[in-house]
Amino acid sequence: MTLLKKRLKIDKIVIENSVANLPLTAKILKTFEDLPIEFVEAITLSKIGYRPGELIVAQRRGKSIKNCPGTPVYQCCDYYVLNLGIGCFFNCHYCFLHHYMNSPLMIFVNLSELIADVREFCSRRPKRIFRVGSGEFVDSLGLDEIVDFNSILVPELSRIPNLLFEIKTKSKRVDHLLKLDHRGRVVISWSLNPQEIIDEDEPETDSLIDRIKAAARCQEAGYRVGLHFDPMIYYSGWEAGYSEVVDMVFSNLRADRISWISLGALRFNAALKPIIKKKFPGSKLILGELIPGLDKKLRYFLPIRRRMFAVAVKRIRFHTKDVPVYLCMEDAALAADVGASRLSQGDY
């Protein structure tokens, strides 16, 4: 447990009174029983007064399921986000969560209400299939190291007939998922990058081969998996690097059990640039040919993105013609140009 606390860098638990008696809270208290605990009346989302190192155990109020905060001017893949908390101890250098660098990790433990929200949301349009993922503001599996969210979410959410629940991660820790009843309605997805990029800009995450092996174990357990080459990073040797990752994927995974592959090039709000510079002075991320896109986010100049996507799509198509490949936050013309498609209901 000491190791876990050290890894998560947690030294205090703050619990909102309204969730003090919930089962997940009890589990957290047991896991971190030797840490100081403070009970508070209400936690505001601005988290003013809290600091990194504190784990905030709170109640999610308001809508727990929202449209993916994609980019209105680029094509959206029609995705929904289930918000289980905010913060991540993987600390990837490009992550937008560094905007909140002085904030603690916050998790929402009123899972029964969150599940009811999702059920109600999906019931409004029963003929439509909703893709909902929990990996936007947290690493979906990273969170399980604090308290095992997915052992509750997977069996419960997979009862919803028109929902495809996506667990997005850079973690290899899948043991607890393998025996869960997922009813074929849960996709476990990994974000993939060449190992040299993982070493450079995702150093606190699991290795590429460990992620792929974890994906293979999930496939063996009957899960479908998703793969996100996102963010793709332009570096000397990128072409060989990403091609090797694609080859590794198809030599370890069954193509017919891959639900989708997405490609997205590095992009971030301009305000993140000085933060990356200060927090990770050795990182070369901000030194790419990044220009402001239509959404004002910094992204690689279009011909560079086009070339990166084209190379990746070609390599994927060398291995399989059937797995849907789509671009994240790009326009339809570029997708068509590089041979990617728009993910549609029929694809999943």
Partner: peptide, 8 residues
């Protein structure tokens, strides 16, 4: 053109 040739 659109700034930085982000579209056609």
């Amino acid at each position: 053109p659109t700034p930085f040739f982000e579209d056609n």
